[in-house]
Design a binder for these strands. Structure first.
Length: 589
RNA sequence: GGGCUCGUAGUGAAGUUGGCCUAUCACGCCUCCCUGUCACGGAGGAGAUCGCCGGUUCGAAUCCGGUCGGGCCCGCCA
């Protein structure tokens, strides 16, 4: 008998002598009788230490919380009235004959119990090895291992070959900042940790691998967020040869995500289509209807365009706007003035001039702007937005991008306020047809909208055309409850289209050859058409287990400043190490 | 790089319109008592330069300036 089976097997061995090992979860000293709850990753079991075992008893008097102990004794069913129905082992207890102290512990700086007070995140991260003792964190670790098994078994079952690619790779100009690794042998040169195995997996397609996947470590030196880890994170990275239509990848992969939601996480996928597939939304639709390219579809609250209703309006704010749109907030009439002020501030922070609204109560439309609108306009607004008594309608009137951005943000904020984000539900969508190029609002410079390796619809002809901003990339994202969880594309495997695509944003042929030489070169030797994608598996797992912060799903995450406060990393290195690498550190500030 | 916000015993919080704060509470810790508890109970005790520096004031945890650190967001990132 060992500690791995503390809970279940102990119960099974009622009447027998067992030895259990674990940490002292709590100790209740009654003077003449001492109870000790021993905990391991499976749960707790109660030890009873009586003076009859003199040695064990005197030791039990000295032990403290989180001491590491081994106890030998007889498992006995408790008498009626002494059973604890709150824990699985509450029906039994172990009458200790031998107690051994395996190690002591100082009082803990963080709480290791799920109930009660929880320490601040900084302390939890500093003492992560203790924080992980909490049953919930133990559960998350085990659950994550199970999650990996589901991913691998799905991919293996679909004929994908798992292939690992180098961690020491090359810097690439597009995308995130790289982590650089100096080369000792080739002084002055650097490796870069891969932001994704993008080029390697495309090379594998040229190599004749029909279907590749990898649970890949990706490295990006960009500022983190609650849903974005600093430094390293994991992707389920995959690529399929002889695929010319992104739907082939989407159809191949979406059953996995649906299955994870339904069967792994026991959540309901609320917005599947009649045939059981995931809804497809174009980028443009997503932006126009939900004000976001990663809309949370657990709730409606769609953006409604009111341009026709307000075609001849005399109200200056609406009249002078490029477009007027609105969202109808169910129950919004209950919002107080100060709450509306709060939402107005949010709207302003997104670039709105203010936040006009109409509140519907007792058959009346109450609004600071009602007096500027005609009867027919008011009626039109109510009809178009579907507002009924108790609702409120909020307006955005500005240039189109700003209106969509503002209302998209408000849509999320209102959903938060009215508790529409049900954690037991999962809403999925594919966002497709992203713009290939996007113009930088400030500089006016054209740049890749998303991934430069995706195939522009219309090929060479489209790229050479005049209307570059209307070119659609064969590129797709999957969104889950407002989080982007996957990004993929049908790849550009034609060297001439590749050169042209890069040339449009200012990268000449020699630069492309230098940066993506291996890939471009490979494409000259019979590259099959191919497509793929990569799922952010930390983020998906976060949503599946109902966490709001991605650090909760990783054993040893960095904090928001990219620091591992437990290991004190990053850190200085020896001069000798630097010398060997021909590196001089000169910090001037 | 920018915005917002937080920093008070080992831990979590209260106090923050300046004085009633000689800083409150809970958990934890220490000593003693207790043979059926399971968040055991009872009696007693220790533990805080209120993140740091400076200023205003008769008086600062509280106001002001700076600084350091955390969190969320924008930028950035897929």
């Amino acid at each position: 008998m060992n500690s791995r089976t503390l809970t279940a097997e102990t119960i099974a061995k009622t009447g027998q002598v067992v030895e259990v090992r674990g940490w002292v979860n709590s100790r209740r000293d009654h003077g003449g009788l001492i109870f000790v709850d021993v905990r391991d990753h499976t749960g707790v079991v109660q030890l009873v230490v009586s003076p009859e075992s003199a040695e064990a008893f005197s030791l039990a008097e000295t032990i403290r919380d989180e001491y590491v102990v081994a106890a030998k004794g007889t498992v006995k069913e408790r008498d009626d009235g002494l059973k604890n129905t709150h824990i699985p082992t509450g029906g039994i207890e172990i009458f200790v004959s031998e107690l051994r102290l395996l190690n002591k512990s100082e009082p803990l700086p963080v709480n290791v119990h799920d109930d009660g007070q929880q320490s601040g995140e900084e302390l939890r991260l500093k003492y992560r090895f203790l924080d992980l003792r909490r049953p919930k964190m133990q559960e998350n670790l085990k659950k994550r291992a199970e999650y990996y098994r589901v991913l691998r078994s799905y991919m293996d079952g679909r004929g994908f070959t798992e292939i690992t690619t180098p961690i020491l790779a090359n810097s690439s100009p597009e995308g995130a900042r790289d982590f650089l690794v100096p080369s000792r042998v080739h002084s002055g040169k650097f490796y870069a940790l891969p932001q994704a195995p993008q080029q390697f997996k495309q090379l594998l397609m040229v190599a004749g691998v029909p279907r590749y996947y990898q649970i890949a470590t990706c490295f990006r030196d960009e500022d983190p967020r609650a849903d974005r880890l600093y430094g390293d994170f994991y992707q389920l990275d995959l690529e399929m040869a002889f695929v010319e239509d992104g739907n082939d990848v989407r159809s191949e992969m979406e059953p996995l995500i649906i299955d994870l939601a339904n069967n792994f996480a026991n959540k309901e996928v609320v917005n599947l289509q009649d045939d059981g597939t995931v809804r497809r939304l174009t980028y443009k639709e997503a932006i126009e209807v939900y004000g976001s390219d990663k809309p949370d579809l657990r709730f409606g609250m769609e953006l409604v365009e009111l341009s026709d209703v307000l075609e001849n309006t005399e109200f200056g704010v609406f009249k002078n706007a490029e477009v007027v749109k609105a969202i109808c907030v169910k129950g919004g009439a209950s919002l107080s003035r100060s709450q509306i002020d709060g939402f107005t501030e949010i709207a302003k922070s997104e670039g709105a001039g203010g936040l006009a609204y109409i509140s519907y109560e007792n058959g009346e439309a109450k609004s600071p702007i009602a007096k500027f609108l005609s009867e027919s306009e008011l009626a039109g607004i109510k009809e178009k937005t579907g507002a009924v008594d108790g609702d409120a309608v909020f307006f955005g009137a500005d240039v189109r991008v700003v209106v969509n951005k503002v209302l998209g943000r408000l849509r999320n904020e209102f959903a938060e306020h009215f508790d529409l984000k049900d954690k037991n539900k999962v809403a999925l969508a594919w966002i497709i047809d992203f713009p290939f190029y996007e113009k930088d609002e400030k500089t006016g410079k054209l740049d890749f909208g998303h991934n430069p390796f995706s195939m522009p619809k219309g090929g060479l002809e489209a790229i050479r055309g005049d209307d570059k901003e209307s070119i659609i990339a064969d590129q797709y994202d999957m969104v889950m409850n407002g989080y982007e969880i996957c990004s993929g594309a049908v790849r550009n495997y034609a060297p001439d289209v590749m050169y042209e695509a890069f040339a449009t944003v200012g990268y000449e042929k020699d630069v492309v050859d230098q940066r993506f030489g291996a890939m471009i070169n490979a494409f000259k030797y019979g590259a099959p058409p191919h497509a793929g994608c990569a799922f952010g598996i930390d983020r998906i797992f976060m949503v599946l287990i109902g966490e709001d912060n991605i650090r909760e799903v990783v054993a040893f995450p960095k904090n928001g400043s990219g620091v591992d406060v437990m290991m004190d990393s990053p850190n200085l290195v020896d001069d000798a190490q630097l010398q060997e690498l021909s590196i001089k550190v000169d910090i001037t500030e």
